[in-house]
Simulated assay, not measured.
Amino acid sequence: MVEIINLRRARKAQAKRKAEQEAARNRTLHGLSRAQKERLQAENRDAENHLDQHRLEPKYEE
């Protein structure tokens, strides 16, 4: 005989499994130490400054 399943519980369990998988993926993608975050911020700031220094200003003729 077939076991009766509560669909509400099954949906919640499935959603919980998906959320746990996504959380694990986000931990691996965004799980950086403070030193790594500060280094990345410094690198991004330096790169942005470098680009700003080489930006060409448009010459408007009025």
Rank of each mutant, 00 (worst) to 15 (best):
A13I: 00
A13W: 01
E3D: 13
N26K: 15
A47C: 07
H30T: 04
Q14Y: 12
H30M: 05
H54I: 11
M1R: 08
A47T: 05
E62D: 09
R45E: 00
R34N: 07
M1L: 14
K18F: 01
E57L: 06
A15S: 12
S33K: 08
E62R: 07
E38H: 12
Q36P: 12
L32E: 02
K18V: 00
E48V: 13
Q41N: 07
L56K: 00
E3R: 03
E22W: 01
K12V: 10
L29C: 04
A24P: 02
L40Q: 09
E22M: 03
E61K: 03
A19F: 05
L40R: 11
N6K: 09
Q41P: 04
L56A: 06
R27E: 04
I4Y: 10
E62M: 06
R27F: 01
A24V: 07
M1Q: 09
R11V: 01
Q14V: 07
I4T: 04
L32G: 00
N26P: 09
L51I: 03
A42L: 05
N44S: 10
L7F: 15
Q53Y: 15
L40I: 05
E20N: 05
S33R: 07
L29T: 05
T28N: 15
E48D: 13
Q21I: 01
R45Q: 06
A35H: 15
K59Q: 08
R8M: 02
R34T: 03
R9T: 10
H30S: 06
Q14P: 09
Q14N: 13
L40H: 13
A10G: 05
E22N: 02
Q21Y: 02
A47P: 04
E20K: 01
E38K: 10
P58Y: 01
K12I: 11
K18M: 00
R34F: 02
Q21T: 03
R8I: 09
Q14W: 11
H50V: 01
E38A: 11
A10Y: 13
V2R: 07
N26R: 15
A42W: 02
I4V: 10
K59C: 04
E20T: 04
E43S: 05
R25A: 09
N44D: 06
I4A: 02
E57S: 11
R39C: 03
R27H: 01
Q41C: 09
L56E: 04
H30G: 03
L29Q: 05
E57I: 09
V2D: 14
R25C: 08
A35T: 15
A13T: 01
A10N: 13
A15K: 12
L7T: 09
A24E: 03
R55F: 00
R9A: 14
Q36A: 10
K18L: 02
I5P: 06
E48F: 13
L40E: 05
L56V: 08
V2M: 12
